[in-house]
Nucleic acid binder design. Structure first.
Lengths: 202, 202
DNA sequence: ACATTTGTTAACCATTTGGTTAAACCTATT
DNA sequence: AATAGGTTTAACCAAATGGTTAACAAATGT
């Protein structure tokens, strides 16, 4: 039997759907069981409690996101190239997992201690290399002076916000689903240009 | 008796606290009653149901946010000035209401139909004037060509994200509460500079 | 073939939760 | 002081919810 067909994995898969769309508090164990096509008792057999099942889903979700961040942080390419790649890759990735950013951001806000557990994990994104690279390129006169943390948050903000605030932005800009998708698609390059325009020393 | 001391208002006040920090699903009517210092039956006496109490809180919250957006959209000052003012005012405002962005974004994601009700309200932010102004300044050669929707989303993203993603950003940039506050404070001008650097025709 | 472990189910349970009710409690008006 | 109105409370209720149990089935090892 393939891994994807085991009961344990079917549960995790159903739990992912339910938790990511309804959050910890809105999710119902019965709904997860129904979606997985099994008895509710099985959830507890494999994962003990709602909390533990939730944590399994959350860690899974975060372990998808972290490599996306590390991609920009841990390679040696010039900042400009980092930004172009990240903006393109991250947006492509998020269009495939639209619930992910909101799920993670929201559950971290609900329980601030939660991130402490994540920090312990190896693979938790580290900014040091990125900062050093930014500072180096500023010294070389390649970039205008900017605090690396601020730049990093700006990059994150511009890429993540369209997914977090989708319902609001859709309404404000009066776009339907199709137009919003095109809007997001064009951001793959627009955002990179916007950032680079701002920081590149002319 | 002042308006703030009426039972009805005390309920709304307590409900705001609880709903904004725990969300619709996580909030408990008993907790709201306790926080308001009254009997649980009073909640239903004044607001009928949890759903209606929630909607009262939500509309209230949105009616705080909308004027902040309209400020940038509906005045006649040059784009550069709009951006500087908005970035400063919005961040100042959000530092006073840190739960607001997450609450609104999150509940809109939970129930996409909800925004339809808001759209009907007069005072729902309208981008037309802002777009016209951006296009005009581009024609004048004052700004580099950019889609006004994209620019608007960028402005929003850069200003809102530090509040939405606070726990994540705090962890990634390894800042404590005090450092994060200073970081946010300095964004009042940093973000405006970042945007204007990017779009100003040199 | 038999025993032991592992997986699965239906029924059940205690608690929590949003909501209701009927009576008590003001407070102003007559 | 009696009355009538809205206001407030304690007690209650039905439904939902996370979790448990005990019996049963299916593998697994000997």
């Amino acid at each position: 039997m393939k891994k994807e067909e085991t009961t344990e994995h079917q549960i995790l898969d159903a739990a992912k759907d339910v938790f990511q769309s309804k959050g910890m508090d809105g999710a119902r164990m019965q709904e997860i069981a129904d979606k997985a096509g099994i008895n509710k008792a099985m959830l507890h057999y494999y994962y003990r409690s709602k909390q533990l099942l939730f944590e399994a889903v959350f860690k899974n979700a975060f372990s998808l996101l972290a490599p996306q961040l590390n991609a920009i942080l841990n390679d040696d390419s010039p900042i400009e190239e980092k930004i172009r790649n990240f903006t393109n890759d991250y947006t492509t990735f998020m269009m495939k997992h639209p619930y992910l950013p909101n799920f993670i951001i929201n559950e971290l806000n609900r329980n601030e201690d939660f991130i402490l557990k994540l920090k312990e994990n190896t693979g938790f994104p580290n900014l040091e290399k990125f900062k050093a690279k930014v500072d180096a390129e500023i010294s070389q006169g390649n970039l205008k002076p900017i605090d690396a943390d601020q730049l990093f948050v700006n990059i994150l903000a511009l890429n993540i916000f369209p997914f977090l605030g989708k319902p609001l932005v859709k309404a404000l800009t009066k776009k339907d689903e199709k137009a919003y998708k095109a809007f997001t698609e064009s951001r793959k390059t627009e955002v990179a240009n916007f950032i680079i325009n701002s920081i590149k020393q002319s």
